[in-house]
Design a binder for these strands. Structure first.
Length: 937
RNA sequence: GCCGACUUAGCUCAGUGGUAGAGCACUCGCUUCACACGCGAGUUGUCACAAGUUCAAAUCUUGUAGUCGGCACCA
């Protein structure tokens, strides 16, 4: 068999995905067991404009690992994929391209044509992200791919809107909103981010009081808004201004008069204690305005230029130009008291970073009270959804819900779900599922539909059930019944509010059940300096580059190997080490394959009885009854070989690796159950590299590479192939491509290794049965005996290295041990000689060696290597003293602990016993070391 | 202002009452018939600081310092 000397990820990545996909391995229908439990995950839909970044790669790896793992366990799995229409982002992107290619604006095209262009764009470029998802190896069901703007999901959106409207939760109203003057749309609070400006200014403006020489000074960061002032407010208890309350101000630069009012909102300590009130351009001022019945004077246009109401001098000026001019005029009038440097935090548009202008505007809002309570009750009564990690997300989620305000759901965009509301000439509103319905309500077809669309997150909120067929018209589908609620949602903490909470609320309201059981909040992938990756900093790392350089599997291992929920700095070195790991797996398998003549994967070589029993158990568990075909299946796996090769024929190394394998399988399953991916990765890494490669392969190498075909050799070859096969299965959810590539090469693999739920599928590791670990194969005795052999070999190697003995030089090894230990060493003599590069092994009750020997102690045995002419006595003394020191430090601490009567009385007895045994062991070993040291003097 | 997280080897990070761990880096030695993306042997720590609880604290509690995050406010 020809196998490359190192792993080439590209080949495997190109080969297998298409096969998996075309054979339908990703779809739940591949599962033939009618009673199989389901497992479902919906992907957080990436933006249709998007391309893959590290955050996606992390999130996707977690979801795919879980899905592949559960699928291998026989669950009917659905990993649902889809993309989001991403209103603002997409509209911006297409607008930009339109400008570039045709020098046109959306307005030039008109709404209908523009939306058509967006669809064209979506059809042309929208598959970038889905192709990248394929590249990552995600086992998503493409036959159920969804898009938030497709018809069925749009029906769902309209249905939900209409129902909420009919129940009075959705309403239209005039409020101060977050306005992006560039995108010319309103934004929800969650779409507004903060930008700290250190060079901000605080302007102190003097307003003259009518019929008086007195002036009142107000401080503001936005002088231009003074053109819309309709009052000045002071605190009612502020002695300085008490007499001025009710006075009239002649507002400079305007010919308006406004009055001084008192309101508790004003903090006397801040600024001058007097606040200019601009109800139409500030949310707090708006509320004060409502309380005092003030006029709401709008002085700005929707592009943040000043309007006619701002006065002829200012009309048409940009807000910042107007600001300069206002300040200039105040200075000319001698009314500019001072300008202070002031650090301001500016609200900016999440998408385009333009400074948000609070603006009075009529919009659609959704009152969240009822749904909020449903979500809070779910958390209170059932601790659902369960957050991983629970701290701090549970509390953050709950607190946010408790303080939830109305949601601004309309957007002044063209790309999105147009609001299903129609107006007649008189301005009466008709909310309906369709235009026809609205016409019917109105008794006329002379209606105009609301030109706004809904917030992108409105449709995302329905994702868990709209993707499974719910659209209000159809409320029960097979998929919905089977896969909803989903099992786990995997996402970043930035969209807990935007998305997670809203999914919970809408699912409870419209489906009557929670959308998911668990929520995994993963960390943020930072750059190597611990900074957030961002386009402006240009410090992003493109996952596709990493795939190219190190392979998809290595990247997945790196991502999965990060602790759940914790941010981590990206390091290429980490991926490199997993690239090396992939190569290690490749080469270990390569070695076994190069020595596989006469052998094949066969579980009867490991433990025939346990395996047969397990399969029967599994079948009984999965199938309602065992029919004739199943009986045949069982007959086929009846291990004839086992009759002549009972388990007792297994060597110590075999029993040891089988035990380690099963322990690892147990622990990996455990780790995955609790979403401790890094733990699972560590376990697999060290089992495979340390236990399997460094020890097992080396221990059985001679037997396996023997030239002469014989039963023993072939059995050993079959065993190692079988252990490899099992290891590949354990690794598959993390490293799908490499494991499939290698698994297909193993002689003896077939669909019979599949989980029983996939009996008739063509052979693939992704449908093989995930090893759960078999407790009857865990052998503590074998593990401790093997440990003694390993310790012995390591000590001899240590002596060789410290004494600079050439690798080519064979040495005799003397070991003093009791008869039980001697027996173990004798049985493994060949391996000890080989791995310690020894010429012979002398076993006895006590040592009888020349003075010129290097010595070491292990639990239950003393080791000596005679080194006439080679020994460096100073170095040997140092070696022994080092060992002795370590033991002494430990011994002293333990002695101290044992001499503490409180400890002996109060600590658990087995703990005390453990310590006593350890102290005894230390004493024995240090006694020996001291004797050896003395002999050197 | 409110809430929270983090601080462990040179670097990046696991561990969460009972002998301090990994990867990388570093030192020494190896063309040992799977792998130099490798093999073997090493070195490296007041587990931020202080007090408390406990027989026992890196781990629990409180406080301090530094770093970072979320929310609110920001005239």
């Amino acid at each position: 068999m020809e196998i490359a000397k190192s792993y080439n990820p590209k080949e495997a990545e190109e080969n297998h995905y298409r096969i998996w996909e075309t054979r339908g391995c990703f779809a739940p229908e591949i599962n033939e067991n009618p009673n199989a439990e389901k497992y479902s995950i919906v992907i957080p839909p990436p933006n249709v404009t998007g391309s893959l970044h590290m955050g996606h790669a992390l999130q996707h790896t977690i979801m795919d690992t879980l899905t592949r793992w559960k699928r291998m366990q026989g669950f009917r799995t659905l990993f649902l994929v889809g993309v989001d229409h991403a209103g603002i982002s997409t509209q911006l992107m297409v607008t930009r391209q339109l400008k570039k290619d045709e020098n046109k604006t959306p307005q030039d095209l008109g709404r209908e044509e523009f939306v058509r262009r967006v669809w064209d764009w979506k059809n042309k470029y929208g598959d970038t992200i889905t192709n990248q998802i394929r590249r990552e190896g995600l086992s998503v069901d493409w036959s159920r791919e969804r898009f938030t703007m497709e018809e069925s999901l749009s029906i769902a959106v309209r249905e939900v809107f209409v129902r909420l409207y009919e129940e009075g939760w959705i309403y239209r109203g005039t409020r101060i909103v977050n306005w992006c003057p560039r995108d010319k749309t309103v934004l929800s609070d969650l779409e507004v981010k903060e930008d700290k400006k250190k060079d901000g200014k605080l302007y102190f403006l003097q307003y003259p009081i009518k019929n008086s020489d007195a002036k009142i000074t107000v401080a503001t960061t936005r002088p231009e808004t003074m053109l819309g002032d309709t009052a000045v407010a002071v605190n009612p208890n502020d002695e300085r201004y008490k007499d001025l309350i009710g006075a009239t101000i002649e507002l400079p630069l305007t010919n308006r008069e406004i009055s001084i009012i008192s309101d508790e909102y004003v903090e006397s300590e801040f600024g001058t204690g007097a606040v200019k009130i601009t109800p139409a351009h500030d949310p707090n001022d708006y509320e004060i305005g409502e309380r005092h019945n003030l006029e709401k004077l709008v002085v700005m246009n929707d592009d943040a230029t000043m309007n006619q109401a701002a006065g002829a001098d200012f009309e048409g000026l940009d807000r910042y130009k107007a600001r300069e001019l206002v300040v200039e005029r105040f200075e000319q009038l001698g009314l500019l008291e001072k300008i202070e440097d002031y650090e301001v935090v500016l609200p900016v548009c999440e998408r385009c970073k333009t400074v948000i202008e609070p603006l009075l505007s009529e919009q659609w809002f959704c009152k969240m009270d009822e749904m909020r309570d449903m979500a809070l009750n779910l958390m209170r009564d059932e601790n659902s959804p369960r957050f991983f990690p629970e701290i701090p997300h549970r509390k953050v989620y709950t607190t946010w819900l408790e303080n939830l305000k109305d949601w601004t759901i309309s957007r002044q965009l063209w790309w999105g779900h147009q609001i299903p509301a129609w107006y007649d000439e008189a301005g009466n509103v008709f909310v309906a599922r369709t235009a026809e319905e609205a016409f019917e309500q109105a008794g006329t077809s002379d209606l105009i539909q609301d030109s706004d669309v809904l917030d992108t997150w409105f449709s995302s909120a329905l994702w868990s059930f709209s993707t499974l067929g719910w659209n209000g018209v159809v409320t029960e589908t097979e998929d919905l019944k089977t896969f909803h609620p989903t099992d786990v949602l995997v996402t970043g903490r930035d969209i807990i509010f935007l998305w997670v909470s809203r999914m919970v609320m809408t699912a409870l309201k419209f489906v009557g059940e929670k959308p998911f059981n668990d929520v995994i909040i993963h960390g943020t992938v930072l750059d190597k300096n611990g900074q957030r990756m961002s386009k402006t900093k240009n410090n992003g790392i493109d996952p596709l580059d990493v795939f190219e350089k190190f392979g998809v599997d290595a990247t997945r291992m790196t991502l999965a190997g990060s602790a759940t929920g914790v941010d981590f700095a990206w390091r290429d070195e980490k991926v490199e080490s997993f690239r090396n790991f992939a190569n290690k797996i490749w080469n270990a398998t390569r070695f076994c394959l190069l020595n596989s003549d006469g052998a094949q994967v066969d579980y009867s070589f490991l433990n025939p009885k346990a395996e047969a029993r397990d399969i029967i158990q599994t079948l009984k568990g999965e199938l309602s009854e065992i029919d004739e075909e199943d009986e045949e299946f069982l007959d086929k796996i009846d291990p004839t070989f086992a009759k002549d090769n009972p388990k007792e024929n297994l060597s110590l190394a075999d029993k040891w690796i089988i035990s380690r394998l099963n322990k690892t399988a147990f622990a990996v399953n455990n780790a995955l159950e609790t979403y401790q991916f890094h733990e699972a990765v560590q376990l697999l890494y060290h089992f495979f590299w340390d236990d399997f490669c460094d020890w097992y392969i080396e221990l059985v190498k001679d037997e396996i590479t023997s030239e002469e075909p014989n039963v023993r050799r072939d059995a050993a070859r079959s065993r190692i192939l079988t252990i490899i096969e099992q290891s590949l299965r354990l690794l598959h959810p993390f490293m799908p491509f490499l494991t499939e590539e290698l698994w297909q090469k193993l002689p003896g693999v077939s669909s019979e290794l599949h989980n029983p739920a996939y009996k008739s599928a063509e052979k693939t590791i992704m449908l093989s049965d995930y090893p759960r670990g078999d407790s009857s194969l865990i052998d503590e005795k074998a593990e401790s005996e093997m440990q003694a052999v390993i310790d012995l070999i390591s000590k001899v190697r240590n002596i060789r290295a410290e004494m600079n003995i050439k690798p080519s030089e064979k040495i005799p090894v003397f070991v003093a041990a009791d008869s039980d230990a001697q027996k173990i060493f004798l049985e493994n003599e060949a391996q000890i000689l080989k791995l310690a590069r020894a010429e012979r092994l002398n076993l006895a009750e006590s040592l009888d060696v020349p003075k010129a020997s290097a010595k070491a102690v292990i639990a239950g045995a003393e080791i000596a290597v005679p080194l006439e002419g080679l020994i460096d006595f100073d170095k040997e003394r140092e070696r022994l003293e080092n060992q002795l020191n370590k033991l002494n430090v430990e011994g002293e601490r333990l002695e101290k602990q044992l001499s503490n009567t409180n400890f002996v009385e109060r600590a658990p007895q087995e703990k005390v016993q453990e310590l006593r045994e350890r102290v005894a062991e230390i004493e024995t070993q240090s006694k020996t070391l001291k004797q050896n040291l003395g002999a050197l003097m």
